[in-house]
Simulated scan of single mutants.
Amino acid sequence: MRDFKELELTFRNDSYIVPPGCRKEILTHPSGNGKVVEVALFQEHRYAFFYWLQWTRERKQSTPPCLVSLDWHQDLGYPGDIEQQWLKDLNQSDDGEVAGFCWATLPNNNDGQIMAAVYLNLIGDVYVHCRDGYGDEWADELFHDRFGNAHPIRKFRTPQQLEAALLTSSEQAVYFDLDLDFFTYRNHYTEGGSRFTYMPKGKILELLAPETSLMRWIFARLAGFTIATEPEFCGGISKSNKLLDMVTKLYFTPDLFHDACEWKHLRNR
């Protein structure tokens, strides 16, 4: 395996290095508390690792935020011995190295970013609501990071189960992670192969509406919001963009990455 450090890349702007195709927006906090929060958008889900690392590094707090992830897959691949050594060797203060690591070294099937972040204590407890029931374990687990900290890994089949767990927890900060393939019912991994079916728009809006108990809990504690578009697993780029459009129109006005972007529910107050 070639070490990406050997590529001797020259960055024209060392102060702004992100993985390929990533964008972020800095917005007022959705709770209306006067603070700010970042929303990051990318195609490859593993690039969320870059932002979790950057946000946790900037927080400079001993306890990292928990992760709430909505995804069709669990994305809970554990780092093996070699991968753990790569993570230990990663220079977390060098954005160029971290971006290259996400691109070249994290699993390109995008199933290893969560546990890699847990291993480095970049995120705390993990709450995953997903649909994938093909061969994955559904029992709660306990994972110890490289420093010996214990991280409960919890998996939920319904939003009601997720909501109940969060509302009774003591979590103070959360990274909200959304993979748009969560909104597929039938896809590559289900019977029927290339046929895709989708959650109805009304159900999507009902689940993610800012006024729900779940989203109010998340928005009150939001420390960062990552969105993976994953077009291959959404049935193509147009389908992925359609799902993204639903999410952005629900949350943002006039639009994400518009120079006047704001949380819609705040502007409508």
Score class of each variant (00 low, 15 high):
F4D: 02
K24Q: 15
E206R: 15
N110H: 09
K201R: 14
T63D: 12
E137V: 09
W72I: 01
R23D: 11
V174G: 02
D89N: 10
E206N: 14
K242E: 10
R157N: 15
M215Y: 07
Q161T: 09
G133E: 15
W52E: 00
D89F: 06
F176A: 02
V36F: 15
R146L: 09
Y119I: 00
P159R: 13
H144S: 14
P254M: 00
R146Q: 14
I153V: 13
D145F: 06
D95Y: 01
Y127D: 00
H73Y: 08
P64L: 05
A150T: 13
T158D: 13
Y16H: 14
Q160R: 15
T197G: 08
T226M: 07
G32I: 06
G124N: 04
L205T: 15
Y189N: 12
S62D: 14
T28H: 13
A165F: 03
S31T: 12
L67M: 00
L266Y: 08
G80H: 10
D3A: 04
G202D: 14
K88W: 04
E163A: 11
P210E: 05
K201G: 05
G235M: 05
A99Y: 00
G32Q: 09
F183T: 04
I26V: 15
L87C: 02
C130Y: 12
T190K: 10
S238L: 14
R46V: 01
Q61W: 06
S93V: 05
F196S: 05
L250I: 04
T184Q: 12
L27N: 01
P30Y: 02
H29R: 01
F49M: 02
W103I: 08
H258N: 07
E232C: 12
L166A: 03
K264C: 09
P200D: 09
E141H: 10
R12Y: 05
H265L: 03
E262A: 14
